[in-house]
């Protein structure tokens, strides 16, 4: 439809635009110290410092000798760096009757954490898979009860569990604690896995059924290979939760099977003798290292998995 009138109008329009050609062109220039940037980065830097200062104080203090600590300058870096407190915290600090430091508790914690994590994730992932893909009768009721379990305060169940463990002869043993951790991990982990598996395309599951794969075949050969992110999330949640657990550790074990957190408490809160701040700081950092390491190694996968598992209800 090119009649002369419209053509002329277009040309006139082009002239008007040409007059503006000297104006902005290309990407808009960014000002480094704009108000927006100052507020944004200022807040972030402030928050980062706020959280990092305690860590800084801990590291610095753990590297000082006691005379230096007594000077009272908690922010000043050590004049004479010493690793003595670290060695003492790990190998010779006294907790009750034992004087072999945190090392005993560390290995106890490993013996508690590894089987608990493996067991709870193995069971919860199958639970989640069954709930998401094999809609059995009463599935919704089962799921509701399980989720309800996540909201009951742990303290309510401590004494009944003591009795149950005593009756089956596992009270005070590491096995008993592993069972307790696995059970208490179940609600949140099942929810996590169920949501993740429901977010996988349903047609994949159908295709596998047409291809003749059964319950375990689909789980092991189709679902598992697609679920690395959510397993990483579960591992991080469980390792952090179980490693940092104090309540169950102190209730369900005996002094020679105490996990690291309970030992740490016994070192830090001992009422006899001088408070050795440097040893306390070193012991605390050592105890926190495992969850920290796990998080740093798999942080990226963690975020991806959380996003994948949490969105769909």
């Amino acid at each position: 439809m090119s009649n002369p009138a419209t053509l002329a109008a277009t040309v006139a329009g082009a002239d008007a635009i040409a007059a503006e050609l000297g104006g902005p062109s290309g990407p808009r220039p960014r000002v480094t110290f704009s108000r927006r940037n100052i507020i944004l980065y200022g807040t972030l830097i402030f928050a980062a410092i706020y959280y990092l200062i305690p860590l800084y104080v801990m590291v610095v203090t753990s590297l000082k000798g006691m005379p230096e600590i007594r000077l009272g300058n908690i922010f000043s870096p050590p004049i004479e760096i010493t690793f003595e407190p670290w060695v003492k915290a790990w190998a010779t600090a006294c907790t009750g009757l034992n004087c072999d430091g945190l090392s005993r508790g560390f290995w106890n914690s490993v013996r508690i954490t590894v089987p608990s994590v493996v067991l709870s994730i193995a069971i919860a992932s199958v639970n989640g898979y069954a709930l998401a893909n094999w809609r059995f009768k009463g599935a919704d009721l089962f799921f509701t009860i399980l989720i309800f379990g996540a909201f009951i305060p742990y303290q309510v169940m401590i004494y009944p569990i003591v009795i149950m463990l005593r009756e089956i002869g596992l009270y005070g043993s590491l096995t008993g604690l592993v069972i307790v951790h696995s059970i208490f991990g179940m609600p949140i982990l099942t929810l996590l896995f169920r949501n993740y598996f429901s977010s996988l395309p349903e047609e994949l599951f159908k295709a596998a059924r047409v291809d003749g794969a059964g319950f375990w075949g689909i789980y092991l050969r189709i679902m598992l290979p697609m679920s690395l992110p959510i397993f990483v999330v579960a591992v991080i949640l469980q390792v952090t939760g179980i490693w940092n657990d104090f309540l169950f550790g102190v209730v369900y074990t005996r002094p020679d099977t105490y996990p690291m957190t309970v030992q740490l408490n016994n070192i830090v809160n001992s009422t006899q003798g001088v408070k050795e701040y440097n040893v306390n700081m070193a012991a605390t950092i050592i105890t926190g290292l495992v969850p920290l390491a796990i998080y740093f190694i798999s942080g990226k996968l963690f975020v991806r998995g959380i996003a994948a598992g949490a969105v769909k209800g």
């Binding site: 395309p201 047609e203 159908k206 295709a207 047409v210 697609m226």
Partner: peptide, 11 residues
């Protein structure tokens, strides 16, 4: 059966 979303096993 052939599905809309292909449903190929990704791994």
């Amino acid at each position: 059966m052939v599905f809309q979303s292909y449903a190929l096993y990704p791994q």
